[in-house]
């Protein structure tokens, strides 16, 4: 797989990567201009550029410098090379199914924490771009069709907050099979229990069902739509970052025995 194909694949997975491109070099090395090295974040580089020594020089430069913006830097290696350091940095995407009262503050908060937000509902009055100025996309479509059309695996988070039980179930069924990130669904304990029982009877494995965050959100005593949105986003952040869902003060006390 060459650099562009690798980058496209990383972009589809919403992964970040450093990109090093040789933009100038000694006259006799014109053939290396435009050659690229892709270094996915948290991983080893994908192959090498020129040879292991040159590649190591690029990595050393990256490790020694904080990323601020795309820049050119010099590399001495049997002559003078210039490399361009760029980045693939994708916003993670969140899908909100249902465009009701909670969805509005939820979309706002997700945008603040830098998600690209997509919202869908089957009611034109609700799935309305004017109600969601922060959303990248607002889709008006029946949930059934929508779940067939959307590339669910590309979303880091799917939040199911439709207006009704039946639609929640339609969405959840497909999301559990196709999505790979966070899946959360709103509902009372009783409603969640009945949905889970139903899906189990339909043959969806316990393991798959265990991926569902329902009832959605952290227990912060949220009441208003905006508070519930905070509780959902808090749970999502904890999921993405491996957080413990606990007050930091409690952790501090348990460490310090007071």
């Amino acid at each position: 797989m060459d650099a562009f194909a690798k980058l496209q694949k990383l972009a589809q997975q919403a992964s970040a990567a450093d990109i090093m491109t040789i933009v100038s070099g000694p006259a006799e090395r014109e053939n290396v201009l435009g050659k690229m090295l892709v270094i996915p974040h948290g991983q080893e580089p994908d192959g090498q550029l020129l040879d292991p020594v040159f590649t190591a020089k690029l990595l050393a430069f990256r490790d020694a410098h904080e990323w601020i913006k795309p820049q050119v830097f010099q590399v001495e290696y049997h002559g003078n090379y210039q490399c361009f350091w760029d980045r693939l940095a994708m916003k993670p995407r969140a899908l909100i199914l249902g465009a009701g009262h909670i969805s509005q503050p939820l979309a706002e908060l997700l945008a603040v924490v830098d998600y690209e937000v997509v919202i869908a509902d089957d009611r034109p009055d609700f799935a309305n771009a004017l109600r969601f100025p922060q959303a990248a996309q607002v889709i008006c479509q029946s949930f059934e069709k929508l779940m067939l059309q959307l590339p669910l695996a590309e979303f880091s988070a799917i939040v199911i907050v439709t207006r009704g039980h039946r639609y929640d179930l339609d969405c959840l069924r497909v999301a559990l099979l196709q999505a790979s990130g966070y899946i959360g669904m709103i509902g009372s304990k009783r409603r969640v229990a009945s949905i889970l029982t139903l899906l189990q009877e339909e043959g969806i494995s316990r393991e798959r069902l265990s991926r569902l965050h329902a009832p959605i959100g952290l227990d912060i005593g949220a009441q208003s739509p905006a508070e519930i949105a905070v509780s959902i986003v808090a749970e999502l952040i904890a999921f993405m970052r491996g957080g413990k869902h606990l007050p930091l003060s409690e952790q501090w006390r348990s460490c310090h025995g007071s």
């Binding site: 562009f4 194909a5 980058l7 496209q8 972009a11 589809q12 990109i19 491109t21 933009v23 795309p70 820049q71 050119v72 361009f84 760029d86 980045r87 693939l88 994708m90």
Partner: peptide
């Protein structure tokens, strides 16, 4: 580099179109 651009690059290559990528590297 963003995803839409990478999709366009992939498409051009698939179709055998020899395009050029222009990047501002310094200003």
């Amino acid at each position: 580099m963003d995803r839409n651009l990478l999709d366009q690059i992939a498409l051009a290559r698939q179709q055998g179109v020899s395009a050029a990528l222009i990047t501002i590297i310094d200003t």
